[in-house]
Simulated scan of single mutants.
Amino acid sequence: MHVIHGHKHVAPIYRGAALAIGNFDGVHRGHRSLIAETSRIARAKSISSAVMVFEPHPREFFQPGEAHFRLTPLKRKLALFSKLGLQLAFVEPFDAELASLTGEDFIERVLVAGLGVGHVVIGYDFYFGHKRGGNPELMVRAGEELGFGVTVMPPIADAGEAYSSSGVRLALAQGDVKGAAHMLGEPWRVMGRVVGGAQRGTSMGFPTANVPMPKGTTLGHGIYAVRTHFNGQAHDGAAYLGTRPTFDDGKPVLEVFLFDFAGDLYGCDIEVEFIDFIRADRKFHSTEELVEQMEKDIAQARDVLSAV
C-alpha cells in the first residue's frame, strides 16, 4: 500500500481512485464493510482502491487540552488498511486551513482538484467541512454535478446495534476485551515503548515489561491474557493494568509478563494484544498473598491463550 500525505501535488498515477473517507478509529467491522465496498467498486471500475484519513484526529485539533482515547494510532491504522487490501492511503493533515473549508470547498479543492476522485464511499453519518456543514446528501449532489460516483453506506449492525468506535471504547472501559474484539474484527492492541519500572515484579519472580499507556486510554483495570508482538515474533503472557493498590496506589501502569521468555526489552517498541479479561484489580494484605494470586492468574491466562 502506498501512503500519500496531503492532497496537493498528487502524482497522476494516484489520482482517480475509489476513495473511502473517514476517521476510521478502531477500523471496526462497520469500517471494514465500507472498505470492502470501496475495494469492490475499484475492481468493477478498474481503478485504485484508496482511503483518506485525517491526522491528527479532528477532535484532537479542536480540543487540544483534552485527552482523547484513540483506539488506533496512525501506524496501526495504516497497517490494518494494508492488511485489508487497500492500494492507497491519503493522510490529510487536519489543520486550520482544512478546518476552515466549507463542505463544498472540501469537495472541490481536496477531492476533485487534489485527488481527481473516481468514486467516493462514506458512511451514513459522515459530516465534513467547516462546522460540519457537509453531509452525505451534499456529497451525492456534488458527485452528480462534478462527475464522480458516490456510495453512502448504511449502518452495519449486530443484534440491532450499529458498530461504532464509541461502542468499542465503552467495552474496553469495562474490561470487555472480547466484546471489543468482536466489534473490531480482531483483538485490540496497545503500542508503546518499554520503560524502566520499580522492579517489584522482578523481586517477586515475575519480571515485567512496563509500557506507558497512550494518552486518554480508558481500559478497565485488572489482569488480562495478552499476546505481545515485537521483532516479528509473538509471545503469550499476562498483563496488569492498574494503580498497584497493594503498594502505592499510584499512576496507572501497564505491566506485561511474558511466559517462558528471557531477555531485555528496555527501549523496545512492542504491541500488546488483549485477548481476554482474567480478573479485576484489588488490594492484597501481603506480598505473599499477591504472589499466590499472580500464580493463579498466570495459569488461567495460559489456559485461555492455549485455547485461542
Rank of each mutant, 00 (worst) to 15 (best):
H2P: 05
V3Q: 03
H7D: 10
V10K: 11
A11P: 02
A17L: 11
A17C: 15
A18F: 10
A20D: 00
G22A: 07
F24S: 05
R32K: 06
S33W: 11
E37R: 15
E37H: 13
A42Q: 05
K45V: 07
I47R: 08
S48H: 15
M52T: 05
V53Y: 07
F54V: 12
P56A: 01
R59S: 01
F61G: 06
F61D: 04
E66V: 13
H68I: 15
T72V: 09
T72L: 04
K75L: 13
K77W: 07
A79S: 15
A79L: 13
L80R: 11
L84T: 14
L84A: 12
V91A: 01
D95V: 08
S100F: 00
E104C: 12
I107H: 11
V110M: 04
L111Q: 10
V112D: 10
G114L: 07
L115C: 08
V117N: 05
G118A: 14
V120M: 11
V120L: 14
G129V: 07
R132I: 01
G134K: 09
E137Q: 12
L138T: 05
R141E: 15
F148W: 13
V150A: 11
V152T: 04
M153T: 03
P154R: 09
P155E: 09
A157C: 13
S165L: 09
G167A: 15
A171P: 00
L172N: 08
G175V: 04
G175M: 09
V177R: 02
M183L: 15
E186G: 05
R189M: 13
M191Y: 09
R193V: 14
V194S: 02
G196L: 06
G197V: 03
R200D: 06
M204C: 00
M204Y: 06
G205C: 06
P207Y: 14
G216N: 10
T218C: 01
L219C: 02
L219H: 02
G222K: 04
I223T: 00
V226I: 02
T228P: 08
T228K: 06
T228D: 07
N231G: 08
G232E: 02
A234W: 03
H235K: 03
A238G: 06
A238D: 01
G242L: 10
R244I: 11
T246M: 09
F247T: 10
D249S: 11
D249A: 10
D249E: 14
L254G: 02
E255S: 02
F261R: 02
A262K: 13
A262I: 12
G263D: 12
D264S: 14
Y266T: 02
G267T: 06
D269A: 06
D269Q: 02
E273S: 09
I278W: 00
A280F: 08
F284L: 08
H285M: 08
L290H: 07
V291I: 10
I298A: 15
A299P: 01
R302A: 07
D303K: 15
V308M: 08
